[in-house]
């Protein structure tokens, strides 16, 4: 196997109070079958053995579904491969000798924690504001008592595929969360179960989104380009439509 060497330029930051800087690290003998995160594992294991602080970065499932990984790779959230999370990006996509720059998600609403790790609890708070259907356990009718058009179910699913990683915010020059919020709104707006609360839900989620400090959408569509689940910006149009409906009773 042809092993490869790289130069890494990595954003280091001790905590939210400390200044950040780009650290340069040379890595050798990397297999093209490794994922980018496995390459970072190799770097970190080495740093630990020489008693240097390893690079803090997030990951959990490492199969592209949990949404934990969050690295801007050479200027692009999750890297240049379309529809791919950082954990599913393999080193075969990088040339031998390439310089790879790794940075965290950067947005006012995402507060730095350490190195490549940021606080994304703003997303949780937006969903707590209204991203649910009010149904208590045990009160549901039989699942087949309600027919749902296959197209509606499929559209709801396409929006629900959002993994909440925040790449859309990191890619946006306004640090807007409209793709994320749009996906959540769109999922429930397409389903009859979501109808009774649709106005209240949209209003509450948009208000919380504003409060968290996310910017507005100016239709550059970078978010769609970097979304690892390829959520369409159609959901932003739907969000705008739902929002107008929610204020004009």
């Amino acid at each position: 196997m042809n092993l490869r060497n790289y130069t890494l330029k990595i954003w280091r930051q001790k905590d939210k109070f400390s200044p950040s800087y780009l650290d340069t690290i040379q890595v050798k003998d990397i297999s093209p079958d490794m994922s980018l995160l496995e390459m970072l594992d190799v770097v970190n294991n080495h740093l630990i053995t020489i008693n240097k602080e390893p690079i803090a970065f997030e990951s959990d499932c490492r199969e592209g579904i949990c949404g934990a990984c969050s690295i801007v790779i050479n200027g692009i959230p999750h890297g240049k491969e379309r529809g791919t999370t950082a954990c599913q990006l393999h080193m075969r996509h990088f040339e031998d000798g390439e310089t790879i720059t790794l940075e965290p998600w950067r947005a006012e609403a995402f507060i730095p924690i350490k190195d490549l790790v940021v606080d994304r609890t703003a997303f949780d708070r937006i969903q707590q504001a209204g991203g649910y259907i009010s149904v208590n356990t045990g009160s549901a009718p039989d699942a087949h008592s309600m027919l749902i058009h296959k197209n509606a179910a499929d559209e709801a699913f396409d929006a629900a595929a959002c993994i909440g990683c925040g790449a859309c915010v990191a890619a946006c020059k306004n640090a807007s969360a409209m793709l994320f919020v749009g996906a959540k709104i769109s999922q429930l707006a397409h389903l009859p179960q979501g109808d009774p609360e649709r106005k209240r839900r949209t209003n509450a989620m948009v208000m919380q989104m504003e409060k968290e400090g996310f910017g507005s959408c100016s239709n550059t569509l970078e978010c769609e380009a970097v979304c690892p689940k390829e959520i369409s910006t159609k959901v932003i149009a739907e969000l705008n439509w739902e929002f107008i409906r929610s204020i004009n009773n």
């Binding site: 259907i133 356990t137 549901a140 699942a143 309600m146 058009h149 179910a153 499929d154 389903l191 179960q193």
Partner: peptide, 13 residues
């Protein structure tokens, strides 16, 4: 299944 459908889980149809 009843409860998850009521919550808006988009099962295949």
């Amino acid at each position: 299944i009843d409860h998850c459908v009521a919550q808006g889980v988009p099962f295949a149809r």
